[in-house]
Design a protein around this nucleic acid. Structure first.
Lengths: 147, 147
DNA sequence: TTACAACTTACAGTTAACTGTAAGTCAATA
DNA sequence: TATTGACTTACAGTTAACTGTAAGTTGTAA
């Protein structure tokens, strides 16, 4: 099954602008061309593009992803470099998740805060509430900013 | 305790450029000024700035945060709007965490893939390995892209 | 074989969130 | 009170990741 750039874009939920941009930046150097120069996408290209999306979601820039693609194109001599890259990225994503979990705790606190404020018609009620009067799951949360 | 903008920047791990930018964008309208127009940061301002950082970490743009600050400045008549904002944001952050967890699974798969490839000196070993020969925790992972 | 939609490249424009510079003002200290 | 380092605003520049346009080419269908 062969795809033009706009068919590939629909399939990948991207625009053809974005796919051309990725090509220009060297992220998909293996995508073939017709005799006339028209890009031809194949099934296996979509696996790559999905991986690129994954690396982007993991916080890598286009430049960093290009470095990985370059290593891949270079072959087995870069296996160690690629391995190390994935281990470093694993650590960073784990940290990102931890950090988001803390952010979520603050947001959850604010949900309680505003639930209580809305019920009372004023923020002074949750603001002045003693910790022992707050629900257990709220008392445990860090990041209590009363605004 | 009073702080100049550069002292506040050190304390908040930001630059004074960034603090002035936030002020320009209306994110910290309550920060006071000296008679001569110099910004004076107080302890309570830091709580706000920490909340702004939290909302940023939660994926809100400067514009969206400004909307929240405007509601806050308007007083108790906007309690419901602020409550709804935090509930919506809670949902989005939970989705973000879920999505990152999936990304992490793919990265973990690649860690195994490259560990195996480095040990063998070639990617063809992990690529051709039958699922039943892979470790349990790897077999369970989705997002297996063999590159 | 011609029409024409979809493709190509080159390059300019957009957006968000800063980041830096210039010209001038403020405030602490010698 | 004069110096000088930090502050002020206004505005221009930067970066990343697209996004859009213009001019020209390709490929399919009549």
């Amino acid at each position: 099954m062969l795809y033009t750039i706009s068919e590939a874009a629909v399939k990948m939920q991207l625009t053809s602008y974005t796919l051309r941009y990725y090509d220009r930046e060297g992220l998909i150097p293996f995508v073939e061309r017709s005799a006339g120069g028209v890009r031809i996408f194949k099934e296996k290209d979509f696996g790559w593009i999905r991986l690129i999306e994954c690396l982007k979601a993991a916080g890598m820039s286009i430049k960093e992803i290009k470095q990985f693609v370059d290593w891949y194109m270079e072959g087995d001599s870069t296996l160690q470099l690629r391995r190390d890259m994935f281990y470093e990225r694993k650590k960073l994503v784990e940290e990102q998740i931890e950090s988001l979990q803390k952010t979520l705790n603050t947001i959850k606190y604010k949900c309680w805060f505003y639930d209580t404020a809305v019920a009372a018609g004023t923020t002074s009620v949750p603001k002045n509430m003693k910790p022992e009067d707050r629900p257990d799951e709220i008392r445990e949360l860090k990041g209590k900013i009363d605004l």
